[in-house]
């Protein structure tokens, strides 16, 4: 009988079988983050975005295309042709992953970038103007929904954030844009 019980242990298994796949969070890469923020808040934020986003492929994903770049000197210059394609750390960055997981540090870096950009009201105005709003526009559900469109392409997310922003009675457009910019969800495809 003992043998039967032991046999039972050896031949049966309550496991569901081994897994031959791995699901990573399909995030957007540094180029998408850079271009989105540049588009939403304006080209004048280039240096902030290069410093925080483009310079960190290990956090945001996306390699480099060094042959795209024409460099004038060995010191990096924003005016170099196709400077965004530069390998920021070293040449082997060309093999960096196309996208990486959403990490805590990535989120913190994004938040700081948003904070820094949104210190300047010019950037707020730029963003609002894209959706035909201004700083004096009322912060109601309809207007907020338009601004969510700057970041989110998924309707469910736009609605969720719109409702939450309005329900929390967020009073300034800066704070509205901060909520949207700082949320990690717009970087997830």
């Amino acid at each position: 009988m003992t043998y039967a019980i032991l046999l039972f242990f050896s031949i049966t298994d309550f496991s569901m079988g081994k897994s031959l796949f791995k699901s990573s969070t399909r995030t957007a890469d540094k180029f998408y983050v850079y271009r989105t923020l540049e588009k939403v808040f304006g080209e004048s934020n280039k240096s902030i975005l290069v410093k925080n986003i483009l310079n960190s492929p290990e956090l945001f994903g996306g390699g480099c295309l060094p042959y795209n770049v024409s460099m004038k000197s060995e010191k990096f210059d924003l005016s170099d042709e196709n400077f965004e394609d530069r390998c920021f750390n070293n040449i082997t960055e060309i093999g960096s992953p196309a996208f990486v997981e959403m990490s805590v540090i990535r989120q913190v870096k994004t938040e700081n970038t948003c904070n820094e950009i949104l210190k300047d009201t010019k950037n707020i105005r730029h963003a609002l103007a894209l959706v035909s709003l201004s700083e004096s526009s009322p912060i109601d559900l309809k207007s907020v929904k338009r601004t969510t469109n700057l970041f989110f392409y998924k309707k469910k997310q736009r609605e969720t954030y719109s409702k939450i922003i309005v329900n929390n009675q967020i009073k300034t457009w800066r704070d509205v844009l901060l909520v949207l910019c700082k949320s990690p969800e717009w970087q997830i495809l």
């Binding site: 996306g62 295309l65 082997t92 060309i94 093999g95 196309a98």
Partner: peptide
């Protein structure tokens, strides 16, 4: 965009 994916596919440099 897709060339960057290709360079990450053949990733050993």
């Amino acid at each position: 965009q897709l060339h960057r994916f290709h360079t990450s596919w053949i990733k050993d440099y």
